[in-house]
Design a protein around this nucleic acid. Sequence first.
DNA 1: TATTGTTATACTCTATAACTATA
DNA 2: TATAGTTATAGAGTATAACAATA
Lengths: 147, 147
Amino acid sequence: MSGIRHAGLLAWLHLIKVNDKMQRKATAQLAAYGLTLAQFDVLVQLHLAPGITQQELAERMLVSKGNVCGLIDRIAAHGWVERGCHPEDRRANLLNLTAAGRELIEEALPAHEEFVQRQMAALSDGDQRVLLALLRELDRSFSRCEH
Amino acid sequence: MSGIRHAGLLAWLHLIKVNDKMQRKATAQLAAYGLTLAQFDVLVQLHLAPGITQQELAERMLVSKGNVCGLIDRIAAHGWVERGCHPEDRRANLLNLTAAGRELIEEALPAHEEFVQRQMAALSDGDQRVLLALLRELDRSFSRCEH
DNA sequence: TATTGTTATACTCTATAACTATA
DNA sequence: TATAGTTATAGAGTATAACAATA
């Protein structure tokens, strides 16, 4: 690897690799519930913050509102989420899990958490905390400026 | 976040987030060269290991040979890579960068490396090395077993 | 028979932008 | 005018599987 010398670059390459492998595992793990990663993400967001609008969801997921619309379409087709009326703004939709959606995420989320814990168990508790701190720092630096 | 307590899970969520943001930035950075991330990855692989087969490339990229076929189609359409004959196995293609492809990657790779260094600069040199070590450990644990 | 590459299908996700209905 | 959501288009990536040529 001729031009590759610095730890930062190598760290980034490994981050891609780890993310890639984890994503494949996670995708397979969630497929058992009929969920894609993006759909799981939506359900978790609505689980944590019921009643947000599609616009708010788009901002949280760093995705366009057009994409959110399609995502919600697909999830609603399964009957896991519904669009409600905003009492004060008739343009907006309030998103909420249905009973089926709540049931699904209450089963899928703990299973997914346990799965992730199992993957991360290769690192000691202390190392997991260090990793978290470093990633938090990186994330914060991205938010601070738009290099 | 009710069920979310452990550092491992939080670390994973932040890893997703960091990867996501970096990928967006990287995608934008590479678009200046007319490259997607996957295509850049292919060019880098062929830069480092000229003359590999499509099958070998698929294994390195953790992707099916059918996908590699399409990827190479798109990159070859730009004239950056060519399929050569394998002297001993007429089924196989040997992949090589064209002169244009070499020129492109020799320009895009250092620029991308510099871009990544800039993103990682939020961490000290020591922290970058720690991050690298932790991600390497995780990556190795994924390779060891298929949990 | 097994393997390399090709082709075809179908789906998800993404970006972009025009469109509507409200505000 | 601006905003929330919708729709349409186009492209990339992925998975899967059937297929041809060759081993």
